[in-house]
Computed example of a mutant assay.
Amino acid sequence: MSEAATLLVLVAALAFEAAFGYPAWIYQRIGHPVSWIGSLIAALDRRFNRESESDDKRRVAGILSLAFVLVTVGAIAWMLERLAAQIPNGGIFIAILASTLIASRSLYDHVAAVARALDEDGLAGARVAVGRIVGRNPLTLDEHGVARAAIESLAENASDGVVAPVFWFAFFGLPGLAVYKAINTADSMIGHRTKRHEAFGWAAARLDDLVNLPASRLTGLMFAAAALFARGASPAGALEAMSRDASKHRSPNAGWAESAMAGALGFKLNGPKVYGNVRVEDAYMGNGRRDLAAEDIEAALRLAVFAWGLMIATLLFFAVILRG
């Protein structure tokens, strides 16, 4: 495909995903591409991550396992892209495939469900809803903590689940998108600093940090730009919070989106939290309000929607320019 065609296919993929998401009936019958990748990673983890081996050998095993996953996923995506080039309207086929690896609809729905639960079901229902999208212990969260957790998840996953997939597809097509999702999935499964995975998942965690670096910065800038259009939001606040707080986050990437959203909306996000029974002393992002509620989640969702709209407009602009 030409560069302009790639961008138009990408816009179509975003439109498909926003309109239909990934239908539940398809998931129930055949699963999801990410679940297929996850099954391969889990099998390699069981087979090659041997606790009897030294950390050095487990690290090498993790590197080789990750390489196998990426080559396999990339090759399948490349073959599908080549096949699509040989059929009429193949770009639509690619757009549908790409839409399965973008998560704006799913992310919006899950975060909106937390706001709805806070309004309709109270704290107990909201804890259940937020527990579906965050790793921390929801039982430690009050109403304000639930709202903050939902907004933090929205900000971080706007980068990992939307902007990064778009970025890697724009430059490397379907193989680039598929390989990115494989890296991201591997990090979520084995990229943890636990006794079992610190060595075996070392490569997955480091590579995930690297491939998310450009999208995380872009997401922060997109939130700042979107603040020009979102009611009550501050572009200057987003830029100020990013420059001050992003580098304080324990993740090299998550702080950019979280600090931008916090600064744009006048919130104070992140900070200490509990995973399981372990308290983690994270840095604060932004210097605004901590007492957030359902309406603040809705404000964050509006900002995200404006940001995604600007992203689509930018893709269309460059597609027109490249077509001459």
Rank of each mutant, 00 (worst) to 15 (best):
L8I: 08
V11E: 08
L14C: 12
A15C: 14
A19G: 12
F20D: 06
G21Q: 03
G31S: 12
H32N: 11
P33M: 07
G38C: 08
I41C: 03
A43Q: 13
N49R: 01
N49Q: 05
E51N: 10
S52Y: 04
S52E: 14
D55G: 07
I63G: 02
L64E: 06
A67H: 01
A67S: 15
V71Q: 02
T72Q: 01
V73P: 00
R105V: 04
L107D: 01
D109C: 06
V111T: 02
V111H: 00
A113V: 02
A115G: 02
A115C: 10
R116M: 11
D119E: 15
D119M: 07
D121L: 14
G122W: 11
V128P: 02
G131F: 09
E143C: 12
V146E: 04
V146C: 02
V166W: 00
A178R: 04
Y180G: 01
A182Y: 05
N184M: 07
A186Y: 00
K195L: 15
E198C: 05
W202Y: 11
A215N: 09
T219P: 05
M222N: 08
L228Q: 14
A236Q: 14
A238F: 10
S247W: 14
R250K: 13
A254W: 00
A257L: 07
E258N: 04
M261Q: 02
L265F: 03
G266E: 09
K268S: 15
K273M: 13
D291S: 15
L292R: 03
A299K: 15
T314D: 05
